[in-house]
């Protein structure tokens, strides 16, 4: 049996009177692509921050990569990668400098960094652009580069926060190719998105509404359960039900 990459039990975070995430419980298996969906303000970001060790939960339990999120955040941070749409790369550094920097943060040796850099540039066919400022790259390339850098230290789990917002349809799919590739290597992918077709690419998805997980299953099973043709319909049914 494979070890679970993430397990949470009744994980809760309160901000004053406001309950951002309300006793959520779920498990994510190693190597799984787990889609974490929800409306704006449903508590996705809060949950994700707790799992990354950035936010201390109010109550409940969770283990990420086998480590406790209350006491072992340092070990967790060594084993996860993180990428968000808003912040990932330094625009005023070159592609290579960014790779070097993030490799350095995670304590890769110089020879490892050199090796990784060459490998990464080759896989993204960015050999020509290695010394270009990231600012000058098209958005789609930046996102692909950001993902590759997020997994540069071979983390066992990668958290992706709306990684494909505003990206053109082809690049978006190329991005998902990268995700599939990593998952096939055994990396666990934890991803949020507003594109409902991307939800279908996930092995399993959870849908959060008002701080609670309202649905959790494979896309096919969820569509069956809600009698819907697409994930979009499932999502609308769930989110509408509250109001």
């Amino acid at each position: 049996m494979t070890q679970a990459a993430i397990t949470t039990t009744a994980l809760t975070k309160r901000f004053g009177n406001f309950i951002a995430t309300n006793a959520i419980s779920f498990d994510v298996a190693q190597g799984e692509i787990f889609g974490f969906l929800g409306a704006n303000g449903a508590g996705k970001t809060t949950a994700m921050r707790m799992l990354c060790g950035l936010l201390r939960p109010s109550s409940g339990e969770a283990r990420v990569a086998g480590f406790d999120i209350y006491t072992q955040t340092e070990q967790i941070k060594q084993r996860i990668g993180y990428m968000s749409q808003k912040f990932s790369l330094y625009e005023d550094l070159t592609v290579k400098e960014n790779i070097r920097f993030y490799g350095g943060i995670y304590g890769l040796s110089n020879s490892q960094i050199r090796e990784k850099t060459a490998d990464l540039l080759q896989r993204l066919s960015l050999e020509q652009e290695g010394n270009m400022l990231v600012r000058a790259l098209p958005l789609g390339w930046k996102q692909k580069l950001a993902f590759s850098i997020a997994v540069i230290h071979d983390p066992s789990i990668v958290f992706l926060d709306e990684p494909t917002g505003g990206v053109d349809p082809i690049t978006r799919r190329q991005f998902w190719d990268l995700i599939y590739e990593s998952a096939a290597k055994g990396v666990t992918i934890f991803v949020t998105t507003h594109y409902m077709d991307e939800a279908e690419y996930c092995n399993r998805i959870s849908i959060m509404v008002d701080g609670k997980i309202k649905a959790l299953d494979t896309p096919a099973a969820l569509k069956k359960q809600f009698g819907a043709d697409t994930m979009n319909e499932v999502f609308l049914q769930l989110a509408r039900a509250k109001s």
Binding site: A39, N40, H194, F235, L236, A239
Partner: peptide
């Protein structure tokens, strides 16, 4: 509708 969830977009 950029960055807005599917319900609000609809």
């Amino acid at each position: 509708t950029t960055g807005v969830d599917p319900v609000s977009r609809k």
